[in-house]
Simulated assay, not measured.
Amino acid sequence: MEEFQGKIGKDWRTSVPWWPPQPKPKVGTPNVVLIVLDDVGFAQLGCYGSNIATPRIDALADKGVRLANFHTTSLCSPTRACLLTGRNHHRSGMGRVADLAIGFPG
């Protein structure tokens, strides 16, 4: 992880946000599609035995990988950080909702 290159002043007027450059995949890296459904549980998905019709999700699940032993957090962004990194969301630096990103650490 790169070191923060912005400036943290006494308040927002004297602070300068910074975001690290976007990573670029290596040539030949395979494309992977990861689908995360927020605010649903196993009871809402036909592929896990629900009586609710979810044919598109079921079709995707039939040809993909289904995870059934995954710890979620109380917020969507930290849960996604756990899934993508395989680590606790705080260890990944994601303790809040990502749409609040302001260019400062933490």
Rank of each mutant, 00 (worst) to 15 (best):
H71W: 10
R87M: 10
I35W: 13
P23H: 12
R66H: 05
T79K: 09
L67Q: 00
C47R: 09
R80I: 14
C82W: 00
P78M: 11
W18I: 03
S92H: 00
K7P: 00
A53G: 09
M94W: 08
D39E: 04
V97Y: 11
S50W: 15
A43G: 09
V40A: 02
T85N: 01
L45F: 05
V16G: 02
H89M: 09
W18D: 03
P30V: 00
Y48W: 07
G49S: 08
P20Q: 11
R56P: 00
C76Y: 06
M94V: 14
T73S: 15
A59V: 04
V27H: 08
K24S: 11
L45T: 11
S92R: 05
K26V: 07
C76W: 03
L60W: 15
C47L: 08
W18M: 03
L37A: 13
V32F: 07
M94N: 10
H89Q: 12
T85D: 02
V65K: 12
G49Y: 12
F42L: 11
T79F: 01
G9N: 10
L75V: 08
Q5I: 02
K24R: 04
R80Q: 12
C47T: 07
V65T: 14
P78D: 06
R80Y: 03
V27S: 15
G95H: 00
D38R: 08
W12Q: 04
G93W: 02
G9V: 05
K7M: 10
G28Y: 07
G6M: 05
F70R: 07
K24L: 13
Y48D: 04
P78F: 04
R87Y: 05
V40W: 08
N31A: 10
L37E: 08
V36W: 04
T54R: 10
W12F: 13
Q44W: 11
A59M: 11
R91S: 07
A61C: 14
L45M: 15
L67Y: 01
S15D: 07
G93A: 03
K10Y: 05
E3A: 15
S50T: 06
Q44L: 06
D62Q: 14
G86M: 03
A53C: 06
T14G: 11
P17M: 07
W12H: 05
P55N: 04
L34F: 09
G41L: 12
G64R: 01
G46R: 13
V33Q: 07
Y48H: 12
R13T: 13
M94K: 00
L75N: 05
K24T: 14
L60N: 04
K7W: 03
H71N: 15
I57W: 15
P30D: 01
T72N: 15
A101H: 05
G86V: 02
P30S: 02
D38M: 01
G86T: 06
A98D: 02
V16S: 07
R87H: 08
V40H: 08
G64D: 08
E3V: 14
Q22K: 13
T54F: 02
V36P: 01
S50G: 05
I35L: 15
E3Y: 08
P23I: 03
G6P: 02
W18K: 04
K26E: 11
W18S: 02
V32S: 00
G41F: 07
A59H: 12
V97Q: 13
Q5N: 00
L45K: 08
V33H: 09
C76T: 15
E3W: 03
D99A: 11
